[in-house]
Amino acid sequence: MKGIKLLDRRFEEVFLFLSMVAIVGLIFYQVVSRYVFNDSITWSEELARYIHIWQVWLGASFAIRMNQHIKVEVFRDLFNRTIRKVIDCIALFLWFFLAGVLAFYGTQLVLNLLGTGQLTPAMRIPIWIAYAAIPVGGILMCVRLIQQMILLFRPNTLEEGTS
C-alpha cells in the first residue's frame, strides 16, 4: 500500500525533476562551451528537444493527478451534484478515448519506425526512442484517468491533488 502511494505521488515527478535538470544542464553547457571553450556542440539541441517531448507527455499525465489541465467548467457547474458526476464521467471517458488513441496509434507509429529504421539527424540514433514518448504518455494518461474515475466515485480514498 505504501509502495503504491509512493508510486502514485512520485513516479512521474522524479522523472520530471531529473529531465528538467538535464535540459537546463545541457543548454547551459552549450552556452558555456560556445563562449568558454569556443566549441559548438552539434547534438545538444536535438537531445534537449527529445528529452523535452518526453517531459511534456509525462508532465501531461501527472497534471491529470494534480488537476492542472485548463478547462471550462461553467456549463457543468449549472447542474446539481448527480448530473455533474455524470458529466464528469462522460468527460473522463472522452479523455480516456483520446489517451487510448495516443497509446495505440503511438505504439503503431513506434513499431513502424522500428521497421523502417529512421535515424535522428544530428545524433543518428533510432528516432523511435524519441517518439516512444507519445505511447508511453498515452498509457500513463490512461492509468491516471482510471484513477480519476475511481476518485470520482470514492472521493475520500486518496487525498486531493494539490499543486
Binding site: 569556443n38 559548438s40 556542440i41 552539434t42 539541441e45 536535438e46 539527424p121 544530428a122 543518428r124
Partner: peptide, 19 residues
C-alpha cells in the same frame, strides 16, 4: 543544415560550423 556530413565538411575546411 543539421547533417553530420555537412558539418564535418565545413569543419574540415576550417569553419566553426554548427546547425
Amino acid at each position: 543544415m543539421s547533417n553530420p556530413v555537412h558539418t564535418a565538411s565545413f569543419n574540415a575546411w576550417g569553419a566553426n560550423a554548427s546547425p
